[in-house]
Computed example of a mutant assay.
Amino acid sequence: MIYPIVVYGDPVLKKKARDIEKDELDVKQLSEDMFETMEGASGIGLAAPQIGKSLRMFVVDGRPIEDEDMEDFKKVFINPQILEETGDEWAFEEGCLSIPNIREDVFRNECLTIRYFDENWVEHKETYDGMKARIIQHEYDHIEGILFTDHLSPLKKRMLKGKLQNITKGKMKVDYRVVLPAKK
């Protein structure tokens, strides 16, 4: 099932998500739906809050990035916990399905160690670097209620204010279904 993607301005995107209990829901089905939703929107990562679910879960698929290192990088992360971030910070232009048509440089550490459960409830502790680490950090931010725009300077945020307001009003062009923030 393809979910509509929640866009900038919706409170679910700024809320810290809660852990998932083991038998609370069908995480295999939810992960399949999330992969299908992400692929339909040409994304490489999708967190549960982006489909309106305040749950600590995200999926990643780096295969669309044409790089040998990404060939096997399709994973489900449930109740993840970043244990350590190391290395120099490096800039890369990030975008987000929930903040369409805006891309900005974000600085992130080059390495991370993360503990998580996969869709079979098998626990993993792994270390990632480079683009894999960046994708995980971006999606992990979503379950912490942080958007990539939160990493920008105050000046950059002011410069984007109008574009972000347009997103909340639905004034954007995307080729996937979206859910706009509820009007107050």
Rank of each mutant, 00 (worst) to 15 (best):
A91P: 08
L83M: 05
M38A: 07
I99R: 04
L13Y: 11
E39G: 07
E84Y: 06
E85Y: 03
D10C: 10
K16C: 06
W90N: 09
V59E: 04
E85V: 07
E66P: 08
G43I: 08
E66A: 11
C96R: 03
E39I: 14
G95C: 02
R63I: 12
L46M: 09
D61F: 13
S98P: 09
I82Q: 02
S54V: 10
T86V: 05
M70R: 00
K28I: 14
I51W: 09
M34E: 06
P64D: 05
P64Y: 07
E32A: 14
Y8C: 07
V76G: 00
I51Q: 11
D26Y: 05
E71G: 03
Q50F: 01
D69P: 00
S98F: 00
E21P: 02
D19P: 13
D26P: 09
I65T: 08
D61A: 11
V27K: 08
A47D: 09
E21R: 15
Q81E: 15
G87L: 01
D88G: 11
D23N: 15
G43R: 11
V59G: 05
M57Q: 12
D10F: 09
K75L: 02
G95S: 05
D67G: 06
G9A: 13
W90T: 04
V60I: 11
D72F: 13
F73A: 01
P49S: 12
P11Q: 10
Q29W: 05
F77I: 01
K28A: 12
P11I: 14
D19A: 09
A17W: 02
V27F: 07
R63K: 15
F77D: 01
P100F: 01
D19C: 10
E94T: 04
E24R: 07
A48Y: 06
A47P: 09
P11T: 10
K22Y: 04
P49F: 11
L25H: 02
L46W: 03
G87Y: 01
T37K: 03
E36L: 13
M57G: 07
K22R: 15
K14T: 14
I51E: 12
I82G: 02
D61T: 12
A91F: 13
M70H: 00
I51Y: 11
V60C: 11
L83Q: 02
Q81W: 02
V76N: 02
A41K: 08
R18T: 07
I78Q: 03
E93I: 04
A17Q: 00
Q29D: 13
I20K: 05
K14D: 12
I78N: 00
G52T: 12
E39N: 14
N79F: 00
D88Q: 14
G40H: 08
M34T: 06
P80Y: 00
D10K: 09
N79G: 03
P80D: 06
S42H: 14
L25C: 05
F35T: 07
F92M: 13
E84M: 08
G45D: 12
F58L: 11
S54W: 08
A47S: 15
G87W: 01
C96N: 00
I99C: 01
D69C: 00
P80F: 00
K16Y: 01
E85N: 08
A91N: 12
D23V: 09
I99A: 04
K16V: 15
E36D: 14
E85P: 03
E24Y: 05
K14S: 14
M38L: 09
E39R: 15
K74F: 00
K75R: 15
R63F: 10
